[in-house]
Design a protein around this nucleic acid. Sequence first.
DNA 1: AGCTAAACTGGACGTCGTACAGCTCAACGT
DNA 2: ACGTTGAGCTGTACGACGTCCAGTTTAGCT
Lengths: 194, 194
Amino acid sequence: MNARRHPGQRYPGQRAGLTKEQVIATANDVLADGGFGALTMRAVAERLAVAPNALYSHVANKTELVDEVLDATLRTIREPATDDVEAVLREIMAETLTALLRHPDLMPAFLARQGSRGPHARRLGDIMAAALERVGITGSDAVEARRVLIVYTIGFAAFAAGPPEGNPVPLDELQHNFASGLQWLLAGILAGRC
Amino acid sequence: MNARRHPGQRYPGQRAGLTKEQVIATANDVLADGGFGALTMRAVAERLAVAPNALYSHVANKTELVDEVLDATLRTIREPATDDVEAVLREIMAETLTALLRHPDLMPAFLARQGSRGPHARRLGDIMAAALERVGITGSDAVEARRVLIVYTIGFAAFAAGPPEGNPVPLDELQHNFASGLQWLLAGILAGRC
DNA sequence: AGCTAAACTGGACGTCGTACAGCTCAACGT
DNA sequence: ACGTTGAGCTGTACGACGTCCAGTTTAGCT
């Protein structure tokens, strides 16, 4: 029940009581409703019933806003509760895919930023690194393995967006497809180690 | 020695003698010089010393222009001259990566279009399908395998672009990294088949 | 020779991100 | 209790973008 007033309700100096979290959450809503093309400073501002430039009090620029939305997408992902290294990796990548699929058309931006640099992305990276370390994969090998898995996962999510035209590739087929490739990658990464 | 006159040299009705190929090639140059952000109808037009809207005689809109540039990137890739199926796939993906790396920051757009629909992209797809068929991989299995390989390759190319900030990841490391993952995928795809 | 369709120019519209200046209210030190 | 200050807003505006419309000319066909 978000009170959606028209703008111009406030005179200069009056505050709207925004927070950075609200701005990010609203950007998320706009994205969900209208896709990446609809994600506009002005659109977000309108939903919040503020002037467009009011957002710049909470966000440096649009790039940062997108980064923030990107990282927020990964917030819900939890560390798998298993000891099996392969299972940990498989689950966390699958969860990541699911999370990313909530905003498929954000993936190009995501990929361009190498999977976001925010705290949640870093957390996932750490979980992966820890899992790999437990089977003796460290240093540049670990970097390599992580990179391969991340690229693969984000790539798949981006692929799911696809062009508006044509067959959107059914979701379950896509997930099955994802699982196959992931299995191969994990087999390669963990070959002879567990 | 491209005559680079300022615009306004021509009066209405006079022709500049453009071709669609010229427009695409120039778009390519703009991209190479200034990155994706610089790829603008107006910028392309300026290089060609025509008014911005003159481009619309040769291209429907910017989306089509980008698609065209995307597909042109794959033009140079030739079919590998081997009988070994694994080698064919490995080489063609490696060549694709090299081609794509010429415009890393175009990759997000590329991925969003599921690897472009143009004739050259289709040709590569056919080569892959033929190779897979020779080891008995057909139907949905073949689709799956192709998808995994394409997503992986484009993903890697996109990754190479990365943010302007920070370490750009050295090229040879990236290629070695790519080769590792590719090897794993191929092993999985071809397991017990050749 | 005449006609038509295509290739341009000039100008404009609507939208975008964002800078600048001013207003005003909440929080704080005294 | 009261200035002071700085943060959160509004209004306005700028420059760049994609693209449409209306003209003008020319190439090519009949």
